[in-house]
Write a protein that binds this DNA or RNA. Structure first.
Lengths: 157, 157
DNA sequence: GACTAGTTACTCGGATAGATATTGTCCGAGTAAGACCGG
DNA sequence: CCGGTCTTACTCGGACAATATCTATCCGAGTAACTAGTC
Protein backbone atom coordinates (compact mmCIF):
# COMPACT_ATOMS: atom_id res chain seq x y z
CA UNK A 1 0.00 0.00 0.00
CA UNK A 2 1.28 3.45 -0.89
CA UNK A 3 2.44 5.61 1.94
CA UNK A 4 0.39 8.53 0.68
CA UNK A 5 -2.64 6.89 2.28
CA UNK A 6 -1.44 7.66 5.76
CA UNK A 7 -0.78 11.27 4.85
CA UNK A 8 -4.15 11.64 3.22
CA UNK A 9 -6.12 10.30 6.16
CA UNK A 10 -4.34 12.55 8.61
CA UNK A 11 -4.87 15.48 6.30
CA UNK A 12 -8.57 14.76 5.96
CA UNK A 13 -8.93 14.63 9.73
CA UNK A 14 -7.37 18.04 9.93
CA UNK A 15 -9.71 19.31 7.25
CA UNK A 16 -12.60 17.99 9.27
CA UNK A 17 -11.40 20.17 12.13
CA UNK A 18 -11.14 23.34 10.09
CA UNK A 19 -14.29 25.45 9.70
CA UNK A 20 -16.49 24.18 6.86
CA UNK A 21 -15.88 25.91 3.56
CA UNK A 22 -12.41 27.05 4.48
CA UNK A 23 -9.64 25.47 2.41
CA UNK A 24 -6.43 24.17 3.95
CA UNK A 25 -3.12 25.10 2.43
CA UNK A 26 -1.41 21.93 1.26
CA UNK A 27 2.11 23.30 1.60
CA UNK A 28 1.41 24.25 5.18
CA UNK A 29 0.14 20.76 5.90
CA UNK A 30 3.25 19.25 4.37
CA UNK A 31 5.42 21.46 6.51
CA UNK A 32 3.46 20.44 9.57
CA UNK A 33 4.09 16.75 8.96
CA UNK A 34 7.55 17.20 7.41
CA UNK A 35 6.39 15.73 4.13
CA UNK A 36 7.38 16.51 0.52
CA UNK A 37 4.97 19.28 -0.36
CA UNK A 38 4.64 18.67 -4.08
CA UNK A 39 3.99 14.99 -3.61
CA UNK A 40 1.33 15.55 -1.00
CA UNK A 41 -0.26 17.95 -3.44
CA UNK A 42 -0.27 15.21 -6.06
CA UNK A 43 -2.05 12.83 -3.71
CA UNK A 44 -4.70 15.42 -3.06
CA UNK A 45 -5.31 15.66 -6.78
CA UNK A 46 -6.30 12.02 -6.81
CA UNK A 47 -8.71 12.68 -3.97
CA UNK A 48 -10.22 15.57 -5.91
CA UNK A 49 -10.72 13.36 -8.95
CA UNK A 50 -12.39 10.76 -6.73
CA UNK A 51 -14.76 13.37 -5.31
CA UNK A 52 -13.41 13.23 -1.78
CA UNK A 53 -11.88 16.70 -1.79
CA UNK A 54 -12.60 19.99 -3.50
CA UNK A 55 -9.85 22.35 -4.55
CA UNK A 56 -9.65 26.14 -4.47
CA UNK A 57 -7.10 27.92 -6.63
CA UNK A 58 -5.38 31.23 -6.12
CA UNK A 59 -4.30 33.07 -2.99
CA UNK A 60 -5.68 31.64 0.23
CA UNK A 61 -6.66 28.58 -1.75
CA UNK A 62 -6.16 24.94 -0.89
CA UNK A 63 -8.19 21.79 -0.36
CA UNK A 64 -11.28 21.04 1.63
CA UNK A 65 -13.58 18.08 2.14
CA UNK A 66 -16.05 17.66 -0.69
CA UNK A 67 -18.78 16.40 1.65
CA UNK A 68 -19.47 16.14 5.33
CA UNK A 69 -16.83 14.13 7.20
CA UNK A 70 -19.49 11.69 8.39
CA UNK A 71 -19.89 10.64 4.77
CA UNK A 72 -16.21 10.10 4.04
CA UNK A 73 -14.78 6.75 5.03
CA UNK A 74 -11.22 5.57 5.21
CA UNK A 75 -12.12 3.20 2.40
CA UNK A 76 -13.00 6.14 0.16
CA UNK A 77 -9.52 7.53 0.62
CA UNK A 78 -7.77 4.22 0.11
CA UNK A 79 -9.69 3.47 -3.08
CA UNK A 80 -9.08 6.96 -4.41
CA UNK A 81 -5.32 6.62 -3.98
CA UNK A 82 -4.74 2.93 -4.63
CA UNK A 83 -7.33 2.47 -7.34
CA UNK A 84 -10.66 0.74 -7.04
CA UNK A 85 -9.54 -2.51 -8.63
CA UNK A 86 -9.26 -5.45 -6.26
CA UNK A 87 -5.73 -6.22 -5.14
CA UNK A 88 -6.11 -9.82 -6.25
CA UNK A 89 -6.82 -10.04 -9.93
CA UNK A 90 -7.95 -13.46 -11.00
CA UNK A 91 -6.21 -14.04 -14.28
CA UNK A 92 -8.19 -17.20 -14.73
CA UNK A 93 -5.15 -19.21 -15.55
CA UNK A 94 -7.37 -22.21 -15.32
CA UNK A 95 -8.93 -20.98 -18.52
CA UNK A 96 -5.62 -21.79 -20.19
CA UNK A 97 -5.51 -25.45 -19.38
CA UNK A 98 -5.53 -27.80 -22.37
CA UNK A 99 -8.71 -29.60 -21.33
CA UNK A 100 -11.72 -27.64 -22.61
CA UNK A 101 -13.99 -29.32 -20.08
CA UNK A 102 -11.92 -27.93 -17.24
CA UNK A 103 -12.03 -24.40 -18.57
CA UNK A 104 -15.76 -24.20 -18.17
CA UNK A 105 -15.89 -25.79 -14.75
CA UNK A 106 -13.12 -23.80 -13.21
CA UNK A 107 -13.93 -20.44 -14.67
CA UNK A 108 -17.42 -20.55 -13.28
CA UNK A 109 -16.60 -21.33 -9.71
CA UNK A 110 -12.99 -20.53 -9.05
CA UNK A 111 -12.77 -21.11 -5.32
CA UNK A 112 -9.49 -19.30 -5.06
CA UNK A 113 -10.93 -16.18 -6.57
CA UNK A 114 -13.92 -16.49 -4.25
CA UNK A 115 -11.67 -16.76 -1.22
CA UNK A 116 -9.68 -13.73 -2.23
CA UNK A 117 -12.80 -11.73 -2.90
CA UNK A 118 -14.27 -12.59 0.47
CA UNK A 119 -11.08 -11.58 2.24
CA UNK A 120 -10.86 -8.31 0.41
CA UNK A 121 -14.52 -7.65 1.10
CA UNK A 122 -13.93 -8.08 4.82
CA UNK A 123 -11.02 -5.69 4.55
CA UNK A 124 -13.07 -3.09 2.76
CA UNK A 125 -15.94 -3.38 5.18
CA UNK A 126 -13.60 -2.77 8.09
CA UNK A 127 -12.26 0.34 6.40
CA UNK A 128 -15.72 1.52 5.43
CA UNK A 129 -16.85 1.39 9.05
CA UNK A 130 -14.47 4.17 10.04
CA UNK A 131 -15.45 7.64 8.93
CA UNK A 132 -13.25 10.69 9.01
CA UNK A 133 -15.71 12.26 11.43
CA UNK A 134 -15.40 9.27 13.72
CA UNK A 135 -11.64 9.44 13.82
CA UNK A 136 -11.65 13.19 14.27
CA UNK A 137 -14.17 12.99 17.11
CA UNK A 138 -12.28 10.25 18.91
CA UNK A 139 -9.05 12.15 18.69
CA UNK A 140 -10.68 15.33 19.88
CA UNK A 141 -12.39 13.58 22.78
CA UNK A 142 -9.16 12.03 23.93
CA UNK A 143 -6.93 15.05 23.50
CA UNK A 144 -9.09 18.16 23.39
CA UNK A 145 -6.14 20.53 23.26
CA UNK A 146 -4.67 18.97 20.19
CA UNK A 147 -7.30 20.14 17.75
CA UNK A 148 -6.72 23.72 18.84
CA UNK A 149 -2.99 23.41 18.42
CA UNK A 150 -3.32 21.92 14.97
CA UNK A 151 -5.66 24.65 13.86
CA UNK A 152 -3.40 27.32 15.30
CA UNK A 153 -0.43 25.94 13.45
CA UNK A 154 -2.26 25.77 10.15
CA UNK A 155 -3.74 29.24 10.56
CA UNK A 156 -0.59 30.97 11.84
CA UNK A 157 1.59 33.12 9.58
CA UNK B 1 -0.74 -8.25 -4.81
CA UNK B 2 1.67 -10.23 -6.90
CA UNK B 3 0.22 -12.48 -9.52
CA UNK B 4 2.37 -15.37 -8.39
CA UNK B 5 -0.10 -15.90 -5.55
CA UNK B 6 -2.74 -17.22 -7.87
CA UNK B 7 -0.30 -19.59 -9.49
CA UNK B 8 0.96 -20.82 -6.16
CA UNK B 9 -2.47 -21.60 -4.75
CA UNK B 10 -3.52 -23.52 -7.82
CA UNK B 11 -0.25 -25.40 -7.74
CA UNK B 12 -0.66 -26.30 -4.09
CA UNK B 13 -4.13 -27.64 -4.78
CA UNK B 14 -2.68 -29.86 -7.45
CA UNK B 15 0.01 -31.03 -5.07
CA UNK B 16 -2.69 -31.89 -2.58
CA UNK B 17 -4.18 -34.14 -5.23
CA UNK B 18 -0.98 -35.97 -6.03
CA UNK B 19 -0.09 -38.97 -3.88
CA UNK B 20 1.69 -37.92 -0.68
CA UNK B 21 5.46 -37.96 -0.93
CA UNK B 22 5.47 -37.70 -4.70
CA UNK B 23 6.97 -34.46 -6.02
CA UNK B 24 5.38 -32.48 -8.84
CA UNK B 25 7.51 -31.27 -11.72
CA UNK B 26 7.39 -27.48 -11.77
CA UNK B 27 8.07 -27.17 -15.49
CA UNK B 28 5.17 -29.50 -16.19
CA UNK B 29 2.90 -27.41 -14.02
CA UNK B 30 3.97 -24.25 -15.81
CA UNK B 31 3.23 -25.88 -19.15
CA UNK B 32 -0.17 -26.94 -17.88
CA UNK B 33 -1.12 -23.39 -16.96
CA UNK B 34 0.84 -21.69 -19.75
CA UNK B 35 3.04 -19.85 -17.27
CA UNK B 36 6.71 -18.81 -17.45
CA UNK B 37 8.41 -21.88 -16.05
CA UNK B 38 11.45 -20.23 -14.49
CA UNK B 39 9.37 -17.64 -12.72
CA UNK B 40 6.99 -20.18 -11.28
CA UNK B 41 10.03 -22.04 -10.06
CA UNK B 42 11.20 -18.87 -8.35
CA UNK B 43 7.89 -18.49 -6.55
CA UNK B 44 8.13 -22.05 -5.30
CA UNK B 45 11.50 -21.25 -3.81
CA UNK B 46 9.88 -18.65 -1.59
CA UNK B 47 7.35 -21.22 -0.48
CA UNK B 48 10.15 -23.63 0.37
CA UNK B 49 11.89 -20.97 2.46
CA UNK B 50 8.61 -20.33 4.25
CA UNK B 51 8.20 -24.01 5.04
CA UNK B 52 5.11 -24.51 2.90
CA UNK B 53 6.76 -26.71 0.30
CA UNK B 54 9.63 -29.18 0.23
CA UNK B 55 11.86 -29.61 -2.79
CA UNK B 56 13.42 -32.67 -4.35
CA UNK B 57 16.39 -32.27 -6.66
CA UNK B 58 17.55 -34.42 -9.54
CA UNK B 59 15.62 -36.52 -12.04
CA UNK B 60 11.97 -37.05 -11.20
CA UNK B 61 12.35 -34.28 -8.65
CA UNK B 62 10.08 -31.36 -8.02
CA UNK B 63 8.05 -29.80 -5.23
CA UNK B 64 5.60 -31.23 -2.74
CA UNK B 65 3.65 -29.96 0.21
CA UNK B 66 5.74 -29.73 3.36
CA UNK B 67 2.82 -30.67 5.60
CA UNK B 68 -0.67 -32.02 5.31
CA UNK B 69 -2.93 -29.84 3.14
CA UNK B 70 -5.31 -29.38 6.07
CA UNK B 71 -2.56 -27.43 7.80
CA UNK B 72 -1.74 -25.12 4.90
CA UNK B 73 -3.90 -22.05 4.57
CA UNK B 74 -4.20 -19.57 1.76
CA UNK B 75 -2.78 -17.03 4.18
CA UNK B 76 0.40 -19.08 4.53
CA UNK B 77 0.94 -18.87 0.81
CA UNK B 78 0.17 -15.19 0.59
CA UNK B 79 2.50 -14.30 3.43
CA UNK B 80 5.25 -16.47 2.02
CA UNK B 81 5.13 -14.67 -1.33
CA UNK B 82 4.19 -11.14 -0.36
CA UNK B 83 6.13 -10.95 2.86
CA UNK B 84 4.77 -11.05 6.38
CA UNK B 85 4.90 -7.29 6.94
CA UNK B 86 1.55 -5.53 7.07
CA UNK B 87 0.61 -3.73 3.88
CA UNK B 88 0.00 -0.52 5.76
CA UNK B 89 3.09 0.68 7.51
CA UNK B 90 2.43 3.42 10.00
CA UNK B 91 5.28 5.83 9.58
CA UNK B 92 4.09 7.76 12.57
CA UNK B 93 4.25 11.03 10.76
CA UNK B 94 2.48 12.48 13.71
CA UNK B 95 5.71 11.94 15.58
CA UNK B 96 7.21 14.64 13.36
CA UNK B 97 4.88 17.45 14.30
CA UNK B 98 6.51 20.45 15.94
CA UNK B 99 4.43 20.26 19.12
CA UNK B 100 6.12 17.82 21.52
CA UNK B 101 2.88 17.33 23.42
CA UNK B 102 1.20 16.04 20.29
CA UNK B 103 3.93 13.55 19.55
CA UNK B 104 3.28 11.65 22.73
CA UNK B 105 -0.48 11.70 22.46
CA UNK B 106 -0.71 10.67 18.84
CA UNK B 107 1.99 8.06 18.83
CA UNK B 108 0.33 6.15 21.62
CA UNK B 109 -3.11 5.83 20.14
CA UNK B 110 -2.95 6.44 16.43
CA UNK B 111 -6.51 5.66 15.39
CA UNK B 112 -5.59 5.48 11.76
CA UNK B 113 -3.04 2.81 12.39
CA UNK B 114 -5.56 0.96 14.52
CA UNK B 115 -8.14 1.07 11.76
CA UNK B 116 -5.70 -0.24 9.21
CA UNK B 117 -4.55 -3.01 11.50
CA UNK B 118 -8.11 -4.12 12.19
CA UNK B 119 -8.90 -4.21 8.49
CA UNK B 120 -5.83 -6.20 7.66
CA UNK B 121 -6.53 -8.57 10.52
CA UNK B 122 -9.99 -9.25 9.11
CA UNK B 123 -8.41 -9.89 5.75
CA UNK B 124 -5.89 -12.32 7.16
CA UNK B 125 -8.50 -14.16 9.15
CA UNK B 126 -10.59 -14.67 6.04
CA UNK B 127 -7.60 -16.09 4.21
CA UNK B 128 -6.59 -18.25 7.17
CA UNK B 129 -10.02 -19.89 7.22
CA UNK B 130 -9.47 -21.49 3.82
CA UNK B 131 -7.08 -24.42 3.76
CA UNK B 132 -5.63 -26.03 0.69
CA UNK B 133 -7.38 -29.22 1.65
CA UNK B 134 -10.70 -27.39 1.82
CA UNK B 135 -10.30 -25.92 -1.63
CA UNK B 136 -9.09 -29.19 -3.08
CA UNK B 137 -11.99 -31.10 -1.55
CA UNK B 138 -14.59 -28.63 -2.74
CA UNK B 139 -13.24 -28.71 -6.25
CA UNK B 140 -13.13 -32.47 -6.26
CA UNK B 141 -16.66 -32.75 -4.89
CA UNK B 142 -18.01 -30.45 -7.55
CA UNK B 143 -16.11 -31.82 -10.52
CA UNK B 144 -14.90 -35.31 -9.67
CA UNK B 145 -13.48 -35.94 -13.11
CA UNK B 146 -11.21 -32.93 -13.02
CA UNK B 147 -8.81 -34.25 -10.44
CA UNK B 148 -8.19 -37.33 -12.53
CA UNK B 149 -7.56 -35.28 -15.63
CA UNK B 150 -5.12 -33.01 -13.86
CA UNK B 151 -3.21 -35.95 -12.44
CA UNK B 152 -3.15 -37.64 -15.82
CA UNK B 153 -1.74 -34.57 -17.48
CA UNK B 154 0.94 -34.09 -14.86
CA UNK B 155 1.89 -37.76 -14.88
CA UNK B 156 1.85 -38.25 -18.64
CA UNK B 157 5.16 -38.44 -20.52
C1' DG C 1 -15.25 57.12 0.27
C1' DA C 2 -16.71 53.67 -3.33
C1' DC C 3 -16.06 51.50 -7.62
C1' DT C 4 -13.22 49.70 -11.43
C1' DA C 5 -9.31 48.19 -13.97
C1' DG C 6 -4.68 46.43 -13.77
C1' DT C 7 -1.12 44.07 -11.50
C1' DT C 8 0.73 40.68 -8.68
C1' DA C 9 1.51 36.77 -6.11
C1' DC C 10 -0.26 32.50 -4.95
C1' DT C 11 -2.18 27.72 -5.62
C1' DC C 12 -3.63 23.87 -8.19
C1' DG C 13 -2.70 20.76 -12.17
C1' DG C 14 -0.44 17.93 -15.12
C1' DA C 15 3.92 16.76 -17.39
C1' DT C 16 8.49 15.19 -16.31
C1' DA C 17 12.71 12.38 -13.87
C1' DG C 18 14.40 9.15 -10.22
C1' DA C 19 13.99 5.20 -6.97
C1' DT C 20 12.09 0.98 -5.75
C1' DA C 21 9.65 -3.28 -6.23
C1' DT C 22 7.92 -6.59 -9.25
C1' DT C 23 8.33 -9.65 -13.13
C1' DG C 24 10.99 -12.45 -16.01
C1' DT C 25 15.42 -14.97 -17.60
C1' DC C 26 19.62 -17.52 -17.39
C1' DC C 27 23.17 -20.69 -16.05
C1' DG C 28 25.66 -23.41 -12.45
C1' DA C 29 25.75 -26.82 -8.17
C1' DG C 30 23.90 -30.85 -6.63
C1' DT C 31 21.47 -35.15 -7.17
C1' DA C 32 19.25 -39.32 -8.30
C1' DA C 33 18.49 -42.29 -11.99
C1' DG C 34 20.24 -45.20 -15.43
C1' DA C 35 24.11 -47.31 -18.06
C1' DC C 36 28.13 -49.92 -17.90
C1' DC C 37 31.39 -53.03 -16.21
C1' DG C 38 33.19 -56.64 -13.43
C1' DG C 39 32.46 -60.51 -10.50
C1' DC D 1 22.51 -62.93 -12.97
C1' DC D 2 23.79 -59.45 -9.36
C1' DG D 3 26.28 -55.65 -7.22
C1' DG D 4 28.99 -51.57 -7.53
C1' DT D 5 30.82 -47.62 -9.97
C1' DC D 6 30.60 -44.12 -13.35
C1' DT D 7 28.40 -41.26 -16.39
C1' DT D 8 24.65 -38.56 -17.60
C1' DA D 9 20.75 -35.91 -17.72
C1' DC D 10 17.62 -33.61 -14.92
C1' DT D 11 15.96 -30.30 -11.29
C1' DC D 12 16.43 -26.88 -7.91
C1' DG D 13 18.77 -22.60 -6.46
C1' DG D 14 20.40 -18.25 -6.65
C1' DA D 15 22.51 -14.57 -9.50
C1' DC D 16 21.39 -11.45 -13.26
C1' DA D 17 18.30 -8.12 -16.54
C1' DA D 18 13.79 -5.84 -17.96
C1' DT D 19 9.71 -3.89 -16.85
C1' DA D 20 6.17 -1.60 -14.21
C1' DT D 21 4.93 0.93 -10.33
C1' DC D 22 5.60 4.08 -6.75
C1' DT D 23 7.87 8.26 -5.18
C1' DA D 24 9.37 12.72 -5.87
C1' DT D 25 10.07 17.17 -8.45
C1' DC D 26 9.32 21.07 -11.43
C1' DC D 27 7.09 24.63 -14.00
C1' DG D 28 2.96 26.59 -16.38
C1' DA D 29 -2.30 27.93 -16.43
C1' DG D 30 -5.64 29.98 -13.91
C1' DT D 31 -7.40 32.58 -10.12
C1' DA D 32 -8.40 35.49 -6.34
C1' DA D 33 -6.62 39.10 -3.68
C1' DC D 34 -4.42 43.47 -3.56
C1' DT D 35 -3.13 48.12 -5.43
C1' DA D 36 -3.77 52.19 -7.70
C1' DG D 37 -6.36 55.32 -10.07
C1' DT D 38 -10.81 57.55 -11.12
C1' DC D 39 -15.47 59.28 -10.19
Amino acid sequence: MGRGVEWAVHSCVNMAWTPPGEPVNSARLAEFYKLPAAYLNKQFQSLVRAGVLDSVSGPRGGFLLARRPENITVLDIVLALEGADPAFRCEAILGNVPEPALQENFARTCLISQTMRQAELAWRQALARQSIAGIADSMERRFPADKVKVLDYLAAE
